[in-house]
Design a protein around this nucleic acid. Structure first.
Length: 452
DNA sequence: ATCGGCTCGCGCAA
DNA sequence: TGCGCGAAGCCGAT
């Protein structure tokens, strides 16, 4: 049985007699998916068919062809897996406000199940769709281990206020996933998805090319296996050195929901890596990751200076008039054309590979604050670049990373200094102390393979 | 190389 | 009401 506390109703609709539909959004996987499992459980209890739909919007946040390509390739695998389980899968092209109610009407659907995402434009779809449906819209948090709306009932001040809540709830939610069954009711329609038509329907910037990073549930499982075998043992020692391969590499898979965070947590816990390594990784996977959803869920101004702690807003506003030593345009930043060779290398790595090392994300964003006319422009620029080029862009994790770096979200005050005020400062010599920046710049600092 | 101070406010203990 | 402590740091003193 799926724990009812993972679910909440998003409208006043009533459960009807017809099929159950899972409106897949953020959790684009067949295995270990509480929303899909819940939908099947409801369908079997009512002896009705189960269907899965994905609504493909022509543009999503600031995503480019790079992210769409990764996503659609993952969804092809979803189609194959669902088909073998007698669960029809459909991609609806258009806006969900129109497509979902029409689909529900056409198929006389009795209940719509949807996964959870705190980003405001996604939540807006659910509000509108929920209102126009006469049947129930049930939301299941399939992304977080402890459901976001259960973990805390307010915006958390920092990781230390959130951590005990997560750890206390963990044993109740870290439960084994039931197996998705071959669905016993209904028959598959014969129309398979025309994926080339899906690609044609999107309207995004195609100049940001797809990257050589294999998409899908199978690739995600392989990466998880490799991480646990090769890198987890030294995770606590190597993760903050961008010249080493110390990080998990799971972020794109977690972002698109091709991998379940809960499954990752359980596999890491049962591995025989040292406890220090496991603790360091689980801190990031459980506490920081889920804290990002908490921030975006409870803070309406999650991408604005107004969303920061009051002390941070005060100090940054006070320092907005400070003279910047150098100011770069968004274009100069995007091209990696600053005076800072380390920063340029980080930017170019993201442009080329679609990813940026965790430690670099902080340094990178803080420099944008230093080099832009005001904090809100810095937030906008950092999110623009991250959401365009990173495979895991357009995600609460990226939002909080930028907000932590630029306006001290979940952080505390430090020494007062120009431009930054009391927001934690980072600089080039700090990076030098920490890792071999020369090796890093040699590896990523060249523009030779760019824009060819 | 190592250490303390910087600075804010939450949340628990008393 | 007091007090400990926090996501990755910096800087100057020793």
């Amino acid at each position: 049985m799926v724990d009812k506390r993972r679910t909440r109703s998003r409208n006043e609709g009533l459960i009807g007699e017809g099929p159950v539909v899972y409106w897949m959004q953020r959790d684009q996987r067949v295995s270990s998916n509480w929303a899909l499992l819940y939908a099947q459980e409801q369908a079997i209890a009512r002896r009705v068919p189960l269907m899965v739909v994905f609504n493909l919007v022509p543009h999503y946040g600031k995503a480019t062809l790079r992210q769409y390509d990764f996503m659609l390739k993952g969804l092809e695998e979803v189609e194959t897996k669902l088909t073998s389980l007698n669960i029809p899968f459909t991609v609806l092209v258009g806006t969900p406000e129109e497509t979902i109610p029409a689909f529900v009407k056409k198929h006389k659907v009795g209940e719509v199940v949807v996964d959870f995402n705190p980003l405001r434009f996604v939540d807006g779809w659910k509000k509108t769709v929920g209102k126009s449906l006469s049947v129930r819209l049930t939301e299941v948090d399939a992304h977080n281990i402890v459901p976001c709306f259960v973990a805390s009932d307010k915006e958390e001040f920092a990781a230390y206020t959130f951590r005990p809540k997560i750890h206390r709830a963990l044993s109740e939610y870290l439960t084994k996933f039931p197996t998705l069954k071959k669905h016993p009711y209904g028959e598959l329609g014969l129309t398979s998805i025309k994926w080339s038509k899906c690609f044609e329907s999107i309207d995004v910037d195609e100049s940001v090319a797809p990257v050589a990073f294999v998409s899908g549930e199978r690739a995600a499982q392989a990466m998880l296996k490799e991480f646990i075998k090769m890198r987890l043992t030294r995770y606590h020692l190597d993760r903050n050195d961008p010249t080493l391969s110390g990080v998990s590499g799971l972020s794109p898979y977690l972002h698109f929901g091709q991998l379940s965070a809960q499954e990752v947590a359980m596999r890491v816990r049962e591995s025989d890596a040292p406890n220090d390594a496991k603790d360091a990784f689980l801190e990031e996977l459980l506490v920081r990751r889920e804290l990002s959803d908490n921030f975006c869920f409870y803070n309406n101004a999650y991408d604005q200076l107004a969303g920061a702690h009051v002390w941070a807003q005060t100090t940054l506003t006070k320092h907005t008039k400070d003279k910047r030593e150098v100011v770069y345009t968004l274009e100069a930043l995007e091209q990696g054309e600053t005076h800072d060779d380390l920063w340029n290398a980080m930017q170019l790595q993201m442009v080329k590979e679609g990813k940026m090392h965790g430690w670099c994300r902080m340094y990178w964003a803080k420099k944008i604050l230093e080099w832009t006319p005001d904090p809100q422009s810095a937030i906008d620029h950092a999110l623009y670049l991250n959401d365009r080029y990173s495979l895991d862009g357009n995600d609460p994790n990226g939002v909080v990373g930028v907000m932590w770096s630029i306006c001290g979200v979940h952080d505390r005050a430090w020494n007062d200094r120009p431009v930054f005020g009391k927001v934690r400062y980072m600089n080039y010599s700090g990076a030098k102390r920490k890792f071999d920046i020369k090796a890093y710049i040699e590896k990523y600092g060249s523009k030779s393979t760019l824009f060819t």
